[in-house]
């Protein structure tokens, strides 16, 4: 049995003129114990999808199940079994850290003590502030408390909506280590993120954009499908180099990627030598030109442009 299934789910919101389509007809499955990532920018429909799967919103069309239960018929039972951490901080700001956690444990007829093992790794990091009101915590601490509260009833499926948005690179890394540990305890995790680099930390990912799933696969599977040779190009004056490359007839795409530009040629037989010569004629120097493996971000952009074309 799959931990999550979505079958032809569609959701629109009324708007002046024509309704806004939040989710086109989408389908996917998440296996038991999987760490499944929903990767996409703001406005892709990630939150809408989470709200449907956690039974907080009804889809216009389609069916979905969580832990084998139907999201419409069995919503009460699903709510007992899932943990949900919304993107927006949703705990009680006037209760202390400890009171919030106790409150959520009590709601699910359990206690902090009973499931302490599950939240221990996370909770010890905020335990010294347990008397502080949740509203007075810093962003990172709020996030850890929210995760503890979503876990305290030992859910079988955990839904995390953009837990790392606005979080710095170091804290993001630490958060993903926590997720891996939780997965090790048998919990299925569905997590959304706008950060493409986090895709590689998931077992499988869905790449979403404007309510559509562009691809679903393991990170490696997605990268393997890139289908073109990707070149890393460096020279002096990187910004001018980007503009020059984009002007060239042989170049299909050129995107800046930190210290290098990622370039795809229109024709696989196009020679980087020719391109290099022409760039040298334009006065560029200190070239580094070599083929590299595509990243999820390269794939995401390729899928975006092939859809829009």
């Amino acid at each position: 049995m799959n931990a999550v299934t979505a079958h032809k789910i569609r959701k629109t919101f009324p708007a002046k003129g024509k309704p806004t389509v939040a989710l086109e007809t989408i389908s996917f499955e998440v296996g038991q114990g999987e760490l499944f990532g929903i990767i996409g920018p703001d406005g892709a429909g990630k939150t809408t999808l989470f709200r449907i799967l956690t039974t907080l919103m009804l889809a216009d069309e389609g069916t979905a199940s969580v832990d084998g239960l139907d999201v419409v018929k069995d919503f009460k039972e699903i709510r007992k079994r899932v943990g949900y951490m919304p993107g927006k901080f949703s705990l009680y700001p006037d209760l202390s850290v400890e009171e919030n956690l106790r409150f959520f444990a009590t709601l699910f007829s359990t206690s902090i003590e009973e499931n302490y093992d599950l939240v221990k790794d996370i909770y010890v990091q905020i335990e010294k502030f347990k008397k502080r009101k949740a509203g007075a915590l810093s962003g990172g601490m709020k996030q850890k408390l929210a995760l503890s509260c979503a876990l305290i009833h030992k859910p079988s499926v955990l839904f995390l909506d953009e837990p790392t948005t606005g979080v710095d690179a170091v804290s993001r890394k630490e958060f993903w280590e926590l997720l891996r540990n939780l997965q090790g305890q048998g919990i299925t995790i569905v997590v959304s993120t706008p950060y493409m680099d986090e895709a590689s930390l998931c077992d499988r990912v869905a790449l979403v954009q404007e309510g559509r799933i562009m691809d679903i696969d393991s990170p490696k599977g997605i990268v393997d499908k890139f289908g073109s040779t990707l070149w890393s190009v460096k020279a002096d004056r990187m910004y001018e180099l980007m503009k020059a490359l984009r002007e060239m007839e042989d170049v299909a795409s050129c995107y800046p990627f930190g210290q290098e530009h990622h370039v795809v040629f229109k024709d696989e037989t196009a020679s980087p030598e020719k391109v290099k010569r022409s760039l040298m004629d334009q006065g560029f120097a200190d070239f580094k030109f070599h083929p590299i493996e595509a990243s999820i971000e390269d794939c995401f952009m390729k899928l975006m442009t092939s859809h829009n074309a």
Partner: peptide, 20 residues
Amino acid sequence: DEPTGGVDPITRREFWTLIY
């Protein structure tokens, strides 16, 4: 202040073109 947070990867790059 975090002008590109949550923005898709192509727009993020277009945004940097505006910065340049």
